[in-house]
Computed example of a mutant assay.
Amino acid sequence: MSDELHALNLREAEIAWWPGDISAIEVKVGPDRWLTVPVTDPKWLGKTHIDHKAWLMSRRERNREHEAIANRAKYALDVESYRRKQLSGLLPTIMTAHELRLEEERHRRYMDTAARRMNSAEPRDPFADEVETDASIASEISPTPPVSQPHADTSATRHPEVPGDDDTDDTDDLMD
Score class of each variant (00 low, 15 high):
residue 154 T to P: 00
residue 166 D to R: 03
residue 164 G to N: 10
residue 123 P to Y: 07
residue 112 D to I: 15
residue 134 D to W: 08
residue 144 T to V: 10
residue 135 A to H: 13
residue 165 D to Y: 00
residue 172 D to I: 11
residue 157 T to K: 12
residue 142 S to W: 06
residue 118 M to V: 05
residue 137 I to N: 05
residue 156 A to S: 07
residue 108 R to N: 13
residue 149 Q to K: 09
residue 163 P to F: 07
residue 137 I to V: 14
residue 132 E to V: 11
residue 139 S to C: 05
residue 150 P to E: 11
residue 118 M to E: 11
residue 147 V to W: 02
residue 165 D to Q: 14
residue 136 S to I: 13
residue 143 P to G: 04
residue 138 A to L: 12
residue 142 S to V: 05
residue 107 H to K: 15
residue 145 P to W: 08
residue 124 R to Q: 12
residue 158 R to Y: 01
residue 159 H to P: 00
residue 155 S to R: 11
residue 147 V to S: 08
residue 145 P to N: 06
residue 129 D to Y: 10
residue 119 N to F: 06
residue 165 D to H: 10
residue 141 I to E: 05
residue 156 A to C: 01
residue 167 D to P: 01
residue 122 E to W: 05
residue 136 S to M: 09
residue 139 S to A: 15
residue 142 S to F: 02
residue 157 T to D: 09
residue 173 D to S: 13
residue 167 D to C: 03
residue 138 A to H: 02
residue 164 G to T: 04
residue 153 D to F: 03
residue 166 D to H: 06
residue 115 A to P: 01
residue 143 P to L: 06
residue 127 F to E: 13
residue 109 R to L: 14
residue 153 D to A: 02
residue 137 I to G: 02
residue 131 V to I: 14
residue 161 E to C: 09
residue 135 A to G: 10
residue 113 T to I: 05
residue 156 A to F: 15
residue 173 D to G: 09
residue 139 S to M: 12
residue 154 T to M: 02
residue 124 R to L: 15
residue 158 R to D: 00
residue 134 D to L: 03
residue 115 A to E: 15
residue 111 M to N: 06
residue 130 E to A: 11
residue 156 A to Y: 13
residue 168 T to I: 07
residue 108 R to E: 13
residue 147 V to I: 14
residue 160 P to K: 05
residue 120 S to Q: 15
residue 139 S to D: 12
residue 173 D to E: 15
residue 168 T to W: 09
residue 169 D to W: 02
residue 121 A to L: 12
residue 120 S to L: 14
residue 123 P to L: 14
residue 133 T to S: 08
residue 154 T to R: 03
residue 171 T to V: 03
residue 129 D to S: 14
residue 121 A to Y: 02
residue 131 V to E: 03
residue 135 A to R: 13
residue 145 P to Q: 07
residue 144 T to F: 13
residue 156 A to V: 12
residue 119 N to Y: 06
residue 130 E to K: 12
residue 111 M to F: 05
residue 107 H to P: 00
residue 113 T to H: 04
residue 166 D to I: 00
residue 169 D to H: 02
residue 145 P to H: 04
residue 162 V to H: 06
residue 139 S to I: 11
residue 156 A to W: 14
residue 149 Q to W: 08
residue 173 D to F: 07
residue 146 P to C: 00
residue 129 D to C: 10
residue 113 T to W: 02
residue 123 P to I: 15
residue 131 V to P: 00
residue 119 N to D: 13
residue 129 D to T: 12
residue 164 G to S: 04
residue 152 A to N: 05
residue 171 T to C: 03
residue 120 S to G: 05
residue 110 Y to D: 15
residue 160 P to A: 10
residue 159 H to G: 01
